[in-house]
Amino acid sequence: MKKNNDTVLELKNVSTFVNRNAPNETKILKSLNLKVYAGDFITVIGSNGAGKSTLFNTISGDLLPDEGQVFHNGNDISRDPVEKRPKFLSRVFQDPKMGTAPRMTVAENLLLAARRGQKRGLRFRNLRGNKDRFAKLAASMGNGLTQRLDTPTENLSGGQRQALSFLMATLNRPDILLLDEHTAALDPKTS
């Protein structure tokens, strides 16, 4: 049995409402309790409208819970804004257009991901100094991203863009990785 301090993510009595205080108020997450430990791999299955995206949005901070608490490593993050969570959380969306900056190149997107969650000031970005590292990383996907490092992300195929999103999300090995139908835009070999 694991101890409480091994808990990476915990949801305690989390409830989320839609149309709060309106006649058609609906409770989406209903007093949800969940503990996730380091190394856990959890699959969330449900039909459309079951609350899967609401759960992910609540964990990521895009949606704050109406009731209950969310903890990361024992720290209450229930009211922390989404901007504070990239230090320990990454996400890959079903839509390959989400999670990347379309007018920035593949290499520039990877550089942003490499610095996710860090304090930023004014300094040279050192994109050239990271190109070899990014080329090796892109080669691991086997879908032509290596030859597209200087291509704006908006000019990639949906599968290449989704592969880039996955690389960006896993670059810094986050404590929590949320994958929302992350292989939907990928061919079977790449997925």
Rank of each mutant, 00 (worst) to 15 (best):
N4C: 04
N4A: 10
N5G: 01
N5E: 12
N5H: 02
D6G: 00
D6N: 06
V8E: 10
L9P: 03
E10T: 00
V14S: 04
V14R: 05
T16Q: 05
T16M: 09
N21L: 13
A22G: 12
P23L: 15
T26R: 15
K27E: 15
K27W: 11
K27L: 14
K27R: 15
K30H: 11
S31P: 00
V36T: 15
A38F: 12
A38K: 14
G39N: 09
D40T: 12
D40L: 08
F41N: 12
I45A: 11
S47C: 08
A50N: 04
G51V: 02
K52P: 01
K52A: 03
L55K: 00
G61M: 03
L63T: 04
L64A: 12
L64V: 06
Q69M: 10
V70Y: 05
N73T: 00
N75M: 09
D76C: 09
I77H: 10
I77S: 13
R79M: 06
P81T: 10
V82T: 08
E83N: 13
R85V: 11
R85C: 10
R85S: 09
V92A: 09
P96N: 10
T100I: 11
M104K: 01
V106G: 05
V106I: 12
A107T: 04
E108M: 05
E108R: 01
N109L: 03
A113C: 07
A114W: 09
A114C: 04
R116G: 13
G117P: 04
K119P: 00
K119L: 12
R120D: 07
R125S: 10
N126D: 09
G129N: 01
N130S: 13
N130K: 11
N130H: 14
F134M: 05
F134V: 08
A138I: 03
A139M: 09
A139F: 01
S140A: 12
S140C: 09
S140Q: 10
G144Q: 07
G144K: 12
Q147G: 08
Q147C: 07
R148K: 13
R148C: 14
L149C: 00
D150K: 06
T151I: 14
T153F: 01
E154L: 15
E154G: 13
E154A: 14
N155R: 15
R161H: 00
Q162H: 00
A163W: 02
L164S: 08
S165K: 01
L167R: 03
T170F: 14
T170L: 13
L171S: 09
P174L: 11
P174Q: 12
D175L: 14
D175K: 15
I176V: 15
I176D: 11
L178A: 07
L178C: 13
L179K: 00
D180G: 02
A185N: 02
A185V: 01
A185S: 12
L186I: 02
L186P: 01
D187Y: 07
K189T: 08
K189H: 00
T190Q: 03
T190N: 02
S191G: 15
